[in-house]
């Protein structure tokens, strides 16, 4: 295997683990915005009582969003600064980026909606709520599919 001059951080194992853990937390706290954890005994599991507190799951979701935005910005710019000289994105990466983009954009609008003095139309509010959930569901399905077919984010460029 060739020695790379510019190592892409996105390929590091610790970052992949961090990303998966972060995304799992975001998915869990995101689903926790629906009143289902108490109904279905999730919050009855010892140590999981917090999951029924909508404010707590909301804060964790926001903190996760802060980390995710920082991480995504780092990975995107790391790729443009250094990675693209030696790697190219796979088709599955483009699919994931598209879905991630959907999650992030609808998430930003969701956060804006929650600020004081920001009022969106009822139709737009409903759209971003459903779209945010929809993009997340599709992302999880896509991630599962790409895991099965073992399709990563990048492939090496041959010189």
């Amino acid at each position: 295997m060739k020695a790379h001059s510019y190592a892409l951080t996105a390929g590091k194992k610790w970052l992949k683990t961090f990303y998966i853990l972060l995304f799992t937390l975001m998915a869990f706290t995101g689903f926790g915005q629906m009143p289902i954890f108490k109904r279905y005994y999730i919050s009855d599991i010892p140590g999981m009582g917090w999951s029924a507190d909508f404010y707590v799951t909301h804060y964790i979701h926001y903190i996760g969003a802060i980390l995710l935005l920082g991480l995504l910005a780092y990975c995107i710019f790391d790729y443009f600064f250094t990675g693209r000289r030696e790697f190219s994105l796979t088709v599955s990466a483009y699919v994931r980026i598209l879905l991630l983009g959907g999650i992030v954009i609808t998430g930003i609008f969701r956060v804006l909606k929650n600020l004081p003095d920001v009022v969106f139309s009822p139709e737009f509010t409903l759209f971003i709520d459903i779209a945010h959930l929809g993009f997340m569901m599709f992302y999880l399905l896509a991630a599962l599919l790409f895991l099965i077919i073992k399709s990563g984010w990048v492939r090496e460029l041959r010189n």
């Binding site: 510019y6 951080t9 909301h58 804060y59 926001y62 903190i63 969003a65 802060i66 980390l67 935005l69 920082g70 991480l71 995504l72 910005a73 780092y74 990975c75 995107i76 710019f77 790391d78 600064f81 250094t82 930003i108 956060v111 804006l112 929650n114 600020l115 004081p116």
Partner: peptide
């Protein structure tokens, strides 16, 4: 939540700065 929303503006800037620093 409103305070955390403000931190969301800083997060991508920090990410870009880290990538630029690494480069």
């Amino acid at each position: 939540a409103d305070n955390l929303a403000k931190a969301m503006i800083i997060a991508p800037i920090a990410g870009i700065a880290a990538a630029a620093g690494k480069f």
